[in-house]
């Protein structure tokens, strides 16, 4: 049965958290836990979600959960699996929710190790494109031109000078059983991918784009729309890696305006025509490569 608003449970397992109004990451965790259910064991390293999710004695995560060291999300997940096996637990899912920094920078080696061991766990990276919890610093998943506190926009340099690391492909290069990219702008697609990850025998990885109104400089009500817009304008993509093959889930015939997407967010407010041209050129190169090499 396809998962959608009508079929998913009304029960909330991430409820009462203190995230900013319109938080994309909180939405991603909420939806993922609806699919995984009460038998999920959640690992959230120090990031926004553990900050807003565990304010003693206020405990908005309604399943068993733990805050591991920043670098050790996947390592702790492996440890929980070993513990659960020793106790003879059945019918449970170990899931980790790390941000883009906790996945692509700080948590990368632990994640790599877990995929190498092929432990049966789900690693979900919610990508809001910077270290938002500490006040917007650049991570290796920050896109070109984004204004952060350590890549500030000046007269000559208008923000981050590097582009997003190809994290999804790095994970896929391990030969992982299942990996996918998603966006909170396409919630049904995300739900389906979480379900697929849940039923995968081995490690699975989902990279979900989660807009951050505070860090991106948007109104709190556009979170879902801008997450969809990112996909529609080609600056993010929905894809899966399964059985050694990449597959594009969505291959738009025509992109919507990437310039309009960038201009709607104050984090890109310093960009000029040359910057827009560079972003568009990188986008077109990436899509040419994906369309050539990946299944549709």
């Amino acid at each position: 049965m396809a998962l959608n608003a009508k079929t998913i449970t009304n029960q909330e397992l991430f409820y009462g958290h203190k995230a900013c109004p319109g938080c994309g990451a909180a939405l991603a965790i909420r939806l993922a836990l609806k699919v995984l259910g009460e038998r999920a064991i959640v690992v959230i390293p120090p990031n926004c979600m553990s900050t807003v999710g565990y304010i003693y004695p206020h405990m908005p995560v309604f399943v068993n959960s733990v805050i591991p060291p920043f670098a050790g999300t996947a390592a702790v997940m492996s440890g929980i699996l070993a513990g659960a096996e020793a106790q003879g637990l059945k019918n449970y899912h170990v899931v980790g929710f790390a941000g883009d920094g906790g996945t692509a920078d700080i948590g990368l080696q632990a994640l790599s190790g877990m995929i190498d061991r092929n432990d049966r766990a789900i690693f979900i990276c919610y990508d809001n494109e910077a270290y938002m919890n500490t006040g917007v610093q650049k991570s290796s998943l920050t896109p070109y031109g984004m204004k952060t506190t350590n890549t500030p926009a000046g007269k000559r340099i208008h923000g981050s000078q590097t582009s997003k690391k190809r994290m999804f492909e790095i994970v896929a290069a391990h030969g992982i059983p299942y990996a996918a990219t998603a966006s909170v702008g396409y919630p049904e697609d995300f739900l389906a991918k979480v379900e697929k990850a849940m039923n995968t025998d081995g490690t699975s990885y989902i990279h979900v784009m989660a807009p951050c109104p505070t860090g991106w400089g948007t109104e709190s009500d556009v979170t879902v729309d801008i997450g969809k817009e990112a996909v529609d304008c080609g600056l993010w993509y929905l894809a899966e890696y399964e059985g050694g093959e990449f597959r594009l889930n969505r291959d738009p015939k025509e992109f919507s305006s990437a310039e309009a997407y960038l201009k709607a967010q104050s984090r890109f407010s310093a960009l000029d025509e040359n910057d827009f041209a560079r972003v568009l050129q990188e986008r077109d190169e990436a899509w040419a490569r994906m369309r050539r090499d990946w299944k549709k």
Partner: peptide
């Protein structure tokens, strides 16, 4: 009355968020 220590019973709410609205 709350227990001290690094572990705590999950899923209990002691505050509301309506003040953000």
């Amino acid at each position: 009355a709350l227990p001290l220590g690094p572990a705590f019973e999950t899923g209990q709410l002691h505050d509301v968020s309506s003040g953000m609205r």
